[in-house]
Simulated assay, not measured.
Amino acid sequence: MAGRPREVTDAAILRAAAEVIGRLGPAGLTLAAVAKDVGVVPGTLVQRFGSKHGLLVALAKQAANDAQAPPERAGHVNGSPIDTLYSLVIESMATMATPERFANHLAFLCLDLTDPELYAPAHAMHTAQRAVIEGLLVEAVESAELATGTDTTALAGSVQAITTGAGLSWALDRHGTLAERLRQELDTLLRPYRTTHGAELEET
């Protein structure tokens, strides 16, 4: 007699939904496609999330929750707030490693901007990411990686803008990898604020 199948968690379903969006975009996302990826019937997703829209809302809320504490999960890379910032920015875009996947996730963002139920968690994620970035920049000033007097609030906004803009530019010109482009743009943005100590850490 076959054993009882292991229950698939909501987290696994949401990871599968994000993967399907990366492959097919939000328009191509179906409950059947996600169910196939996790090995359940579509009815299971209907029971859990109600509809495709309900699944998208749950995914957006999970992304907002995940954005609130990445430094605690990752720890400081090489003991450096700046290295940690680079790592988190690159990791945040890791699911968009091809121009096609970037376009599909961008299409999801367009839904976020027009659907009130999706906008609220998207805005919460944006705000949480800004707070995390600013916190790391403050630590970088305190550890002398960035110059004393650096406006960390304004710089955090620039990091977010650079991250989004670099992804779009890379998807259009397709030079190198997205991770390489993000690192290059962050280097350019932060270089005027780096101290001698910060530059030495970067070289090690």
Results as ranks from 00 to 15, higher is better:
Arg6Met: 06
Ala179Asn: 02
Arg6Asp: 06
Gln160Trp: 07
Ala11Arg: 13
Ala69Trp: 07
His53Asn: 00
Pro116Trp: 02
Thr84Ser: 10
Gln68Pro: 01
Met93Ser: 04
Leu136Arg: 03
His105Glu: 10
Ala131Leu: 12
Leu109Glu: 15
Arg194Asn: 11
Leu168Phe: 05
Ser158Ile: 12
Val41Asn: 08
Tyr86Arg: 09
Thr84Trp: 00
Glu203Cys: 03
Pro116Ser: 07
Val46Arg: 02
Glu19Ala: 15
Leu201Cys: 09
Ile21Tyr: 01
Leu31Ser: 14
Glu202Asp: 12
Arg73His: 13
Gly157Ala: 05
Ala17Val: 06
Leu182Tyr: 06
Trp170Phe: 10
Glu145Ala: 01
Gly75Tyr: 03
Leu137Asp: 09
Leu172Pro: 04
Leu56Cys: 03
Thr98Gln: 07
Arg194His: 12
Asp83Pro: 01
Thr30Ser: 09
Ala128Ser: 11
Leu178Arg: 08
Thr127Lys: 13
Gly28Gln: 06
Leu168Glu: 02
Thr196Ala: 08
Glu200Gln: 11
Leu85Lys: 04
Arg4Tyr: 06
Gly50Arg: 00
Ala179Glu: 12
Arg183Gln: 09
Gln62Lys: 03
Leu155Pro: 15
Gly149Ile: 13
Pro192Phe: 06
Thr204Met: 04
Arg191Glu: 13
Ala122Asn: 11
Pro121Trp: 07
Arg15Met: 10
Thr9Pro: 03
Ser143Cys: 13
Gly22Arg: 15
Ala64Pro: 04
His197Arg: 08
Asn78Ala: 14
Glu19Cys: 01
Ala35Ser: 14
Ala103Asp: 12
Ala171Val: 04
Cys110Phe: 12
Arg6Thr: 08
Ser169Arg: 05
Ile90Asp: 10
Asp66Ile: 02
Arg4Met: 15
Leu109Cys: 07
Leu31His: 00
Glu200Thr: 11
Ile133Gln: 08
Ala32Phe: 00
Ala33Arg: 04
Ala16Cys: 07
Ala166Phe: 05
Ala27Arg: 12
Asp37Ile: 01
Ala156Phe: 11
Thr164Lys: 04
Leu111Gln: 04
Asp151Met: 07
Ser169Asn: 10
Leu29Gly: 02
Ala199Ile: 10
Lys61Trp: 03
Glu100Phe: 03
Leu109Asp: 11
Tyr119Lys: 05
Ala154Lys: 12
Leu14Arg: 02
Cys110Gln: 14
Ala124Asn: 07
Ala140Tyr: 06
Asp187Ser: 12
Ala69Lys: 02
Met1Thr: 09
Leu137Val: 14
Leu113Arg: 05
Leu182His: 09
Met96Asn: 10
Thr84Asn: 00
Glu72Leu: 09
Tyr119Gln: 14
Ala107Arg: 07
Pro42Met: 05
Gly165Leu: 08
Ala122Trp: 15
Thr114Cys: 11
Thr95Val: 10
Val40Gly: 00
Ala32Cys: 00
Phe108Cys: 15
Thr9Lys: 06
His197Trp: 04
Gly28Asp: 05
Val57Ser: 01
His175Leu: 14
Leu186Met: 07
Arg181Val: 02
Ala18Phe: 06
Gly167Glu: 14
Met93Phe: 10
Thr127Leu: 06
Glu117Trp: 00
Ala94Lys: 12
Arg191Thr: 12
Gly176Lys: 05
Thr114Met: 06
Leu155Tyr: 03
Ala107Ser: 08
Arg48Asn: 02
Glu202Leu: 11
Gln47Asn: 08
Pro70Glu: 05
Arg194Lys: 09
Ile21Gly: 00
